[in-house]
């Protein structure tokens, strides 16, 4: 396989390497231990670097929201609300919520890949504040959620969505959504730590996410559903999240819904964060 390249002679690799390694070792004074904030931010930086090197991972973040928004608006819009335009007004806050909630499962995928590749073990053998890997990963994910939210909103506005709640209402809805997703991510961390392969994680996450997002008020008003289904829809936290977001974006914020979402987020963190941290520390 001759490529005709001119090969410049180089010193044999490894020549004098041992001397240089001893020199590099010798100068290794011990810096002060990294603070919890610094190590968490460093892991967040790693998440950004991964986005830079593997831009494909942004495909889901960008394509799914656009696809969902267009598909649901034009496929179901006429049937559900009479016209796509009216349906968009109803459904966009729901599509926003659904898109971001779906993206949360990548938290599980990322941690699972780290375990599979051995990065996890390397990191856990370091003298750093142990939860910083998890916190940093969640910080990186939050950035992803923010990007996806922006895309959904921009596409929505382009095809005619107008938020009566204005900029403040939209920011409020996105903020609430990020809080909920950050809290939900602890559940995904548990899944990511527990399940053996990234593919299995994906499968399990889908099984949880599809019913949770579709059997809610995301795409259709619950009043049109059979009673037995309504009773599930009404207690589904996603419904309440969608209602709270819808209220904020429609300039009719419902304090009860918002409080419920904040409460549910707190419960998610209080219940799942200690389990995730415990599993992380004892992961075998």
């Amino acid at each position: 396989m001759s490529t005709g390249e001119v090969v410049t002679p180089k010193p044999a690799p490894g020549a004098g390497m041992d001397q240089r390694i001893i020199a590099a070792l010798g100068s290794g004074e011990r810096p002060p231990r990294a603070s919890a904030v610094n190590s968490s931010l460093t892991f967040g930086w790693r998440a950004l670097l991964k986005i830079k090197h593997v831009p494909e991972q942004l495909f889901d973040v960008t394509m799914f929201p656009i696809m969902f928004t267009l598909m649901f608006t034009y496929v179901f819009g006429g049937a559900v609300s009479g016209s796509p335009k009216e349906y968009l007004q109803y459904a966009l806050p729901g599509i926003l919520v659904q898109t971001i909630i779906f993206i949360t499962m990548y938290t599980a995928m990322t941690i699972n890949q780290d375990i599979e590749k051995g990065v996890f073990d390397r990191i856990r053998s370091l003298p750093v504040w142990r939860p910083s890997l998890l916190v940093g990963a969640l910080l990186g994910d939050t950035l992803r959620y923010l990007m996806a939210s922006t895309i959904v909103l921009v596409v929505g506005v382009l095809i005619g969505y107008r938020a009566p709640g204005g900029f403040v209402g939209v920011i409020g809805a996105v903020g609430l959504l990020l809080i909920f997703c950050f809290s939900l991510s602890w559940l995904w961390l548990i899944l990511g730590l527990k399940v053996r392969t990234p593919n299995a994680v994906m499968g399990m996450a889908m099984m949880i996410l599809f019913p949770l997002t579709f059997v809610s008020s995301v795409f259709a008003p619950p009043e049109t559903m059979p009673g037995w289904l309504q009773s599930f829809v009404d207690v589904n936290p996603v419904t309440l999240l969608v209602e709270a977001a819808r209220g904020l974006m429609n300039d009719s914020p419902d304090g009860g819904d918002i409080l419920f979402v904040l409460g549910a987020s707190a419960v998610l963190v209080v219940v799942f964060a200690p389990i995730a941290l415990r599993m992380y520390n004892r992961k075998s």
Partner: peptide, 19 residues
């Protein structure tokens, strides 16, 4: 116990040094 193969060699060592 390995490094992050999506990152460059430099980035991996920077990451570890910061940690």
């Amino acid at each position: 116990a390995s490094l992050d193969e999506d990152l460059t060699g430099m980035e991996n060592l920077l990451l570890l040094s910061r940690l």
